[in-house]
Design a protein around this nucleic acid. Structure first.
Lengths: 190, 190
DNA sequence: GTCTATAGGATGATAGAC
DNA sequence: GTCTATCATCCTATAGAC
């Protein structure tokens, strides 16, 4: 994500700070300092601190919604769909690492419509994932474990990926996809 | 965790608020309001806001360290050790749900020795878990996947458990343990 | 153990000059 | 597009009365 406008530049700088300390611990002065300008100057490009947060989070949320919709419209088997969702998460992690941090940790600081829009999108996403898993169990591709345990276990691994991806000197994306799919689908025991 | 002193009561009330909004978004006035007293009165029982956070986080961190040490000293097989660690996480999740939220999301707001103590404990914990997985691969109990992918995948599922455990009308702990071990060790594909 | 009052500083945001 | 100056509000924490 390259900054093409001053507004985008602010959002990128802010997202890096949010990732380190969280939305509430980062002040407009902090963001301005990181850009080499004064806090008041930020308001020539953005309406306020809230706008930074909502732009950041809703952009990534849209990506998830779009990706999941594509998966749901495909004619793939449930196992293939789960594989696609895992790969979708990895792609978004690689491309929107900072936005993902805000989405995961600071979504509750969204306000009004932004908050309710986000919550709806997230619920929808989870519901689609749940459908895939249940369909997999019905077709006997997926073990008849509690579907919520399966959903939660995969989703929480994928949601945490952004923390870990940068820390471990950036594994090759394709190897990561292969290994992650293997571990999540087939387990770790020989 | 029952409150036996006024100090403990403050920490419990604060931890619930921290879980909802995060450390920085909760003010001393918020905590006082939730207890039906004024903010200034809190300082008769605690030294400051930081003390609430560090007490909360370090208590849970100690539990993890203690539990992991017990596992490491046992003569169990690697697979049995991984099972024990999963059960340890579930037990701590059930007993310290609010403290876990702070540990996961607000540890970076610890200061000085508390921060470095915590980071050391967490690194130690991860290193022990890594040893178990590598031993499992050597003994050919665990698949020869990238050990970091296995470590991350299990650990991030376990770390997110606290979010999910309360939301889903409190599954029976023993069933949860059984299902979680099954999913994490053996995967989901038939 | 709780209160009122207040210190001392940080915060998000605006007005208006350049 | 950035600046200085400033406002109104919130924050953690303390002092001292009851």
């Amino acid at each position: 994500m390259k900054a093409r406008t001053r507004k985008e530049e602010i959002i990128i700088v802010a997202s890096r700070l949010f990732k380190e300390k969280g939305y509430n611990a980062v002040s407009m002065r902090d963001i301005a300092l990181a850009m080499g300008i004064k806090a008041a100057s930020l308001y020539n490009h953005i309406q306020g601190k809230q706008e930074i947060l909502s732009t950041l989070i809703l952009e990534v949320a849209q990506e998830f919604t779009l990706g999941m919709n594509t998966v749901m419209l495909s004619t793939a088997t449930p196992t293939e769909k789960i594989t696609s969702v895992i790969e979708l998460h990895i792609d978004i992690t690689v491309n929107y690492s900072e936005g993902l941090a805000a989405l995961n940790n600071d979504w509750m600081h969204l306000e009004n419509d932004d908050l309710s829009d986000f919550v709806k999108m997230r619920e929808n996403y989870e519901e689609n994932f749940r459908k895939i898993i249940k369909e997999g169990i019905e077709k006997e591709e997926i073990k008849a474990q509690h579907p919520e345990v399966i959903l939660f276990s995969i989703l929480s691994t994928l949601r945490s990926l952004y923390v870990w991806y940068q820390k471990r000197g950036k594994l090759d994306v394709n190897i990561l996809k292969k290994d992650m799919v293997a571990v999540l689908l087939n387990g770790i025991v020989v």
